[in-house]
Nucleic acid binder design. Structure first.
Lengths: 217, 217, 217, 217
DNA sequence: GATGAATGAGGATTCATTCAT
DNA sequence: TATGAATGAATCCTCATTCAT
């Protein structure tokens, strides 16, 4: 017989509010990331968090709201990591390269968070889609700005109407590559970043001709 | 008073099996595409299909299986459309261009099908994820072959290990662009295809320099 | 061990819709009447009705709606019984007397229904109060009309503004007497009706003087 | 941001027990009166009272007990007010008239208390119904005594078995009139009292004939 | 004395799925 | 074949009540 409450973490009592909230969010990200929004049950989340359901509701509200809170936290973390890596005065290519590396590193270190962010969040018909779209747009916007800056000095600077879809496509390509990565886990984060950098920067036309991008070039 | 069963389609009886199955699949794609897998109810699907629930189960099995059937049908349709557009003896760039055009046209004409394929299918924790991955891999494989052919004659032909992730990234970029398209519906399918073609073929490096790709070039 | 499903009524299956609805309403009135709206549980109602909860919901909707349905049915029954007894061409006193008799007879035969109607329904803060008030007003209106007719030919015919509160007070007195009756069950329905008739028709002033009302006077 | 605990009343500490209890009862009557017994939550009561829940329980016990305490206090207040108005050596009609006036005035000044007393208290299935009945009987008894005294000198003095149901009916009529009053708030307390006095004292038979009761007659 | 933190227990509701006709 | 009728099993959520500080 195994105590179903015993999940390895000590079920410490009387914690201050802030700590509990983090505990809960951690558990929620883990469960949502593994099971998906619908399949996840508040019961399981509360068990993993080591608290009772009433506390779950008291601290972070209903299931929707909890999920939104997860998304917000993870999105913020990812976006900030990328922003930090990027906001220097380097060349556009270098900036992009750094951003991509940070991105793959984040995903590697934080798979559940990534799943929450990407795989569970695209489901239609939910009350939180609107809330979610915002986070995704914020993410795309960071990239779009990066692209805009890259062309600023060039002959044909890109307009937002061009950078925006480009950024969206870049994010989509990144997401897809992550998915592929899950099925081929032997590769390193850097290796993945380099792959994407090459595609994005050089384009297939150049790659076909044997020209490729390398760090420092 | 309106008969809730009356959805305009005649509730004809004694149809041959194949027709019934198509009817059902059409309804299922519509409902799954609109509501998402979990939020969709077998009740609604049977209503939209114009048959009773026991028939639904008799013809296409449980909810999972029905969803898988939807995915399979839509994936097959899309892949075939692309394959047809591509399997001629044209230049790689031209092949890719045609493939992309067909892709965006398909999505435009068949939004529910696309939603089933892309947005609802990425949910984890379901018994059908494995089944689903297969379809997605098939789609990616078509592109990968295309890319492999493109480099066949070049100095550094790409190996599957290279083309495959590239294809995945391309598909991901396409999906993301479609999403962006939904929010900016003024653009044409051709315009979207051209956008993606430029990114993929020229790469950002070239675009920054003012070089871009145009059909026929 | 007793089978909790076995409530004496055969759990017959496959009944036509109309029959089931009556079965359910009967059970609901019984349980609501005994326990009160809040204390009653849908579980118990479904058990008493001999069906499963999903059917309960399918047929009569959520708890609120079910309760409203109960009230409506019981109110209609009572009002109709009284209306029938009253709508002849008799003298006002005779009409009133008949109405009262029918009222107490109804309550005697249908205690649960009466409890639903009167005791459970006055609770504030519920979503169905509005729906309920309507039934109560309908009941009062029947009496008010009766009173209005009684004074039609007199020197000072009563206006609605006078008959309405009077009718309300009469109904209230009736309700209170029923409550008292529950604690003194030895009395007959006719006896109770006579009591109320005397109070209402003669008034305390006359009673004090030794004048009272008797049928046929 | 507003402190949810801040309801205007200073959350003073260390008050003597009696004061605290009054504070709590005031809050409880307010909340029970507005929301009803079941819909009211101990949380809200403690908030309105400006104390923490453990204190609430320490002072006045569980929810049932608290509710009973509310009823007892309000019933006592009302009964005392009426008793005072009535216990003089006036004529029966005058006594009744004064009692009714006090009754409607009390209700007007103390609506929440009245709601607790009348509208929330009739719910069955609760452990406190017995406790409650006692209060209601006390109230009725006051009236019954009044009626008994009125007939003491007459030819046919009423026995308790007659006065008691009459008193109950009178109370019921009063309650119903109050309800009607809530929907027609333009009327004054005196006007309402006069209405009821007329019905009760003269009876419908006299009223129909154009005879009515007026103060001082 | 006073309270923020915590929970056991239970209720409403829905849905995929399957008989019995 | 075709379906109206039926349900087991879960899930979300709330509330009265009580520790531990």
């Amino acid at each position: 017989m195994v105590d179903p409450q015993d999940n390895g973490r000590p079920r410490s009592r009387r914690l201050p509010r802030a700590v509990r909230e983090r505990q809960i969010l951690d558990a929620a990200v883990e469960v949502f990331g593994t099971r998906g929004f619908h399949t996840a049950s508040m019961d399981e989340i509360s068990e993993v968090a080591g608290i009772s359901k009433p506390m779950l509701y008291a601290y972070l509200g209903a299931k929707d709201e909890l999920f939104v809170a997860c998304i917000r936290r993870e999105a913020t973390r990812l976006i900030e990591a990328i922003s930090v890596a990027v906001e220097t005065g380097l060349s556009p290519a270098e900036q992009l390269w750094r951003g991509l590396r940070v991105f793959f590193e984040y995903v590697q270190r934080n798979q559940a968070g990534w799943a929450v962010l990407h795989r569970q969040a695209n489901v239609q018909g939910e009350p939180f889609v609107t809330e979610l779209a915002e986070s995704q747009e914020r993410a795309t916007a960071v990239i779009a700005v990066l692209l805009a800056q890259a062309t600023e000095g060039s002959a044909q600077p890109m307009q937002p109407e061009q950078t925006e879809p480009f950024a969206a496509a870049l994010v989509g390509a990144g997401e897809a590559l992550v998915e592929w990565w899950f099925h081929h886990p032997a590769h390193t984060a850097d290796g993945m970043a380099m792959r994407l950098m090459n595609m994005v920067w050089m384009g297939f036309g150049d790659l076909v001709e044997g020209r490729s991008w390398t760090p420092g070039s």
